[in-house]
Amino acid sequence: MKQPAAVLGVGQTRHRSKRTDVSIAGLCREAADRAVASAGLALADIDAVVVGKAPDLFEGVMMPELYLADALGAVGKPLLRVHTAGSVGGATGIVATSLVQAGLHRRVLALAFEKQSESNAMWALSIAPPFSIPVVAGAGGYFAPHIRAYIRRSGAPPHIGALVAVKDRRNGALNPYAHLQQGDITL
């Protein structure tokens, strides 16, 4: 029943703190162009587009895929918009894969983005859910207590977090598109 699915091509923009040279559409098109080129395809060969983005408040655009339809070559095609919070990049791939596995489409473009420099991510993450006390401290305000609890329970020595960061920065330096290029960093 399930059709096999494979990755045909990938495209990534150079990650950096600000891309003031392009619009949101320009940034997304850059990644899409690279992906279809690496697959030996053109955007016209794509049957459906899946856009991943979370949350909308990062750019200050409600359901930005509607405005991006033209830039992504999605006009006249199915366009799905995935939002699963922090897992959205991976979930976008899962949804695109399901569309192929279900036999609905042959070639699906999965694209996820953030252009945090367009808005204020700290504000966007300072949410106030009903019946909860707002932390008003961005993502760090939510994660720091979890990490502190983990350190206390596990007795993890204080350099463990830094070890992970060093490993990631050294690996990241092997990827020319990574934001941080710190191949020489040490503990």
Binding site: A54, P55, D56, F58, M62, M63, A124, I127, A128, P129
Partner: peptide, 10 residues
């Protein structure tokens, strides 16, 4: 929609 709820990850 987050914009309808007025907050991220609603």
């Amino acid at each position: 929609s987050d914009y309808l709820a007025g907050r991220a990850f609603s």
